[in-house]
Structure formats: structure tokens, C-alpha cells
Amino acid sequence: MTIENRLRAYIDAAPKDAVQWGHSDCSRFAQGWFEQETGRAVDAPSYASEAEAQDLIAQAGSLAALWTQYLGEPDHVRDPDVGFADIGIIAITGGRQCGGIFMKNRTMALRGLAGVSVLRPRGIVAAWSVHR
């Protein structure tokens, strides 16, 4: 199966219902893809609510800084050459950050509050290569 087909199957299998923090939020969505494609387990901290997730992000300084703690330094930082199927952090409204999976044509699939959305990010904060 091609990476395009694996990614489509992964997105199609994502939960369509309300987000469950610590299980099906934007970070877990991207990390699950990373684990599937690299075979490398991600040792991310546990949390069970939005408040707990926000506390972890605040302690780290940002979502990108939190991901860096367990994924290592990003392969791309604000790089327009982020690869297809890489995972990363984008800037969203209100100075917040969200994680997802980069797709073709500089779009990103991300797990929102109720299912997966695809959008064209305005600002890439950091990205980690899935196939290095």
C-alpha cells in the first residue's frame, strides 16, 4: 500500500465524534500517524482533559516545545519544504498552536473538536519527518 493510501485510510479511520482529550485530540491524531509510519513509540505525557493538556503546554512554553520534549528537535522549523505525511505544529487563531499531518498542496489534516478537517495553514511552527 502506498503512503498516500495509508494516510487516507488513517484519516478515514479517525473518530468522527467529539474529541476525547488524551485519546483523540490533535496531538494524539498526529502522534498515532507518526508511530504507525515510523514504528517508534512516542513517550508523550498523559492527560485526560483540555485543562490538563493546557497545563502541560503552558509548562513546556508551547505545543511545539512540548512535542520537542518527546520527539526531539524538529526536522523543519517554519520550512516551506515540509514533506507529505510529515507531522507538525501550525499557528492558529488567538496565538494558539495545533498539531496535524501535512498533506499535498501544503494542506494539513488535523483532528478538531468533532472530526478531521483539512486546511491550508498560514504559519508552520515546526515539523517532524515521518520518513527520514
Rank of each mutant, 00 (worst) to 15 (best):
V118G: 00
G32I: 00
L63R: 08
V82R: 01
P80H: 06
P15V: 04
I57A: 03
Q54P: 03
G88S: 06
E35G: 02
P45Q: 01
G32W: 00
A30Q: 02
F102D: 00
I11W: 03
P15A: 09
A48M: 08
D25A: 02
T2N: 14
K16M: 06
K16I: 10
A18D: 12
G22N: 03
L66T: 10
R78D: 15
C98R: 11
D17G: 12
P45E: 00
V118S: 03
A44P: 07
S49K: 01
R96M: 15
T2W: 05
A44F: 02
H76D: 13
D75H: 08
Q54T: 09
L66N: 07
F29T: 08
V125M: 15
G72Q: 04
D81M: 11
H131E: 15
L56C: 02
D25S: 02
H76F: 14
A41N: 11
W33H: 04
G61V: 12
R111Y: 05
D55T: 12
E37L: 02
G115S: 09
A91V: 08
V125F: 14
S49Q: 08
R40M: 10
Q54W: 11
Q36A: 08
Q97R: 05
I101F: 04
E35C: 03
A44C: 02
I90Y: 09
S24R: 02
S49Y: 06
A53M: 11
G88D: 06
A85F: 13
F102P: 01
I87V: 09
D79V: 08
G99T: 13
Y47F: 11
E73W: 09
W21Q: 00
L119C: 13
G123R: 14
C98D: 08
G61T: 13
D25Y: 04
A41K: 15
S24V: 04
S129A: 15
F34T: 00
G88N: 03
F29G: 03
L63M: 14
E37R: 11
F102I: 04
I3F: 10
C26Y: 01
E35L: 01
G61H: 14
N5K: 13
V82Q: 00
G112N: 04
F84W: 07
D12G: 10
R106A: 12
R120V: 13
D81N: 14
A126F: 05
H23S: 08
W128Q: 03
I3L: 12
P74Q: 07
A60D: 08
A44V: 00
G99S: 15
I90P: 06
D81V: 07
T38Y: 00
V77Y: 06
